[in-house]
Nucleic acid binder design. Structure first.
Lengths: 348, 348
DNA sequence: CTGTTAGCGCCTTCAA
DNA sequence: TTGAAGGCGCTAACAG
């Protein structure tokens, strides 16, 4: 709203009666400046409402203090949490965040990547789209800025990554259900091509195997990650004559479909059926009974992603230039017990 | 990961055997270039993986093609929807979005505003923090870039704004409940200092008044917008000997607290009590029975906000320079009927 | 149609 | 301790 162009460093210098170099040194606290001049410069800058022109500074310095944040699906509440935390941490570290949502569309992802390149973002945090796994990784591996993959890894891609330990996640769910005495347990797992879903299933299977229990294959429902698929899978499971006593839904969309099916069928949770899901769903505490879930450590993941990225950035322009190998961190999930799971003997 | 610095326009020119001006004209489709050269330039740029340096371009052209998006609270699902839509539309229009979350903290808001100024964002879309209403608008009114206020207006601030018609929102809720025969209705309204809450209440009151019904003041619960407050207010309302037959929660946090209280008290919805809330809560269709809500037109609001802002931007550097008065658009909410409201006679 | 050139605002030598 | 000057990559005005 204020009129005209913004003041430049030159105008500040003029008003303070010094050279632009002195202004620069003063405002950036680089180099020695006498007390008197420092004062005059500060006042002048204040009076003019001077704000350094980031583009000019970047052009000169080679760094933009911008991070790209490329998210596979903003509507996913788990990713949203990551976004919140990443924005907060980046901002606190003095970086601006350019937000890009690829909405699980590899084309949008690629366009956004090109844009981030043009903007010369100092680094990028990427939750890649699912479909980019099949060879579409070129754009990512060619990323000329330090990049960190979050939540989803891409095998064979030489990038730092921070993910949940999904094997452990499955195992935690298994141990909980096993401890409650469940033996006939089902899994709604989404797409078996998805590494995360596979890991969660493998961990779940391993957890039961460690206690000598083998999962029935017919109780493992594979399809895709939509709520619709979860709903359909749940209906199938519930129609079996020997119904499972517990169901593990490996993803929040699937859990939603599962709950819908349960509601429609008039099944009582946890009396007739125990249910365990993944992620701290925003409504996990709201539905009656509260959902028992295995949560991913979103805050720790965000922290690790940002710190890893910032280290790379300060380590050198190119991601791998400083000789450090790529790091691939897996953080531990946790069990949150609420009302949707119960000991099996309470059942009949 | 690729080594070394990125190619500049000069290198493209060299490889194509032309001048930098020709490269610039070709790539920007500005000015005439012969077919042969166009081809050579395109190929050279492609081969080098050239991406124009946004900072350099901005410095020269005065425009950054960056929009600031300053959100009062990312965790609010309604704001998230706005963010999603705004990102999508901006990106489609060729703008990058710098996301800032002020988390209802005016200090963070102000810092972010300063950062956007330094970045020389071409414009900003702002959902202001609540507390900034009391005089803290200086930073906003001094915004040296075109800005659009979204969802929350600030009286006396000369900025474009796009909001929901909250009077109409309250009225829609009232008409729906009235049509179902409810007369003893309650409102959990949040803070009366908040303009939005006041408007919703006023509209609600007016809607009933138009049918000759006057709201009982003791049934209008005012406090703040937290889930806790909603919970407490709900408990108070439900403890009255003459219980309300319907409750209107003016905000999604309040609705959450209300639902929790209802669950604890073992009250049946909609048999014992009709409930109507605001916004398309992500779980609105999930809880049994589905929540009847008055929704804000988030997509239309995002569209209007972006288009208004882009018009301002193309209209001139300073927001009001092109002589156009500030526009203040109010978009219409809509009623979505689900299972949480029912005719009163079904009650006993 | 194509090339040459002057800055956009800033930081950083280098000289005083 | 302070000032003068060059140049980051690009676009636009001007010259050929």
């Amino acid at each position: 709203m204020s009129a005209g162009p913004l003041p430049t460093i030159r105008e500040v210098a003029q008003l303070a009666g010094v050279s632009v170099a002195t202004v620069s040194k003063t405002l950036n606290r680089t180099g020695k400046v006498s007390e008197g001049l420092r004062e005059r410069v500060t006042v002048a800058a204040q009076k003019l409402g001077y704000a350094p022109h980031a583009s000019a500074r970047s052009l000169r310095s080679g760094a933009t203090r911008i991070l790209g944040l490329l998210v596979a699906d903003l509507a996913n509440p788990y990713f949203l949490k990551l976004v919140e935390n990443i924005e907060r941490l980046s901002s606190a570290a003095g970086y601006s965040v350019i937000l890009c949502n690829s909405a699980e569309d590899p084309e949008r992802e690629e366009r956004h990547l090109g844009m981030l390149l043009s903007q010369r973002a100092d680094g990028a945090i990427v939750i890649p789209t699912r479909r980019s796994w099949n060879g579409r990784m070129a754009a990512l591996s060619g990323l000329p800025v330090p990049g960190v993959l979050v939540d989803r890894r891409i095998e064979g891609l030489d990038l730092d990554s921070v993910t949940t330990d999904n094997l452990m996640l499955g195992r935690l769910a298994a141990e909980h259900l096993d401890g409650l005495g469940h033996r006939r347990v089902a899994v709604i797992m989404g797409s078996p091509e998805h590494q995360i879903a596979r890991h969660r299933l493998d961990g779940f299977r391993a957890g039961f195997a460690a206690r000598g229990v083998t999962l029935e294959e017919r109780l493992i429902q594979k399809d895709n990650f939509s709520e619709e698929a979860g709903h359909a899978a749940a209906l199938r499971l519930l129609s079996f004559s020997e119904r499972p006593t517990a169901i593990f839904a490996t993803n929040n969309h699937l859990a939603l479909g599962l709950l819908r099916a349960i509601g429609e069928q008039g099944i009582s949770v946890p009396e007739d059926l125990s249910v365990i899901a993944v992620d701290e769903l925003p409504w996990a505490g709201l539905v009656r009974p509260g959902m028992t879930v295995v949560t991913q450590p979103s805050e720790a993941i965000a922290e690790m992603a940002v710190s890893t990225l910032l280290e790379r950035i300060s380590g050198g322009r190119s991601s791998l230039k400083n000789g450090r190998d790529t790091v691939s961190v897996q953080l531990q999930p946790a069990l949150v017990v609420r009302g949707s799971t119960a000991a099996i003997r309470s059942r009949r």
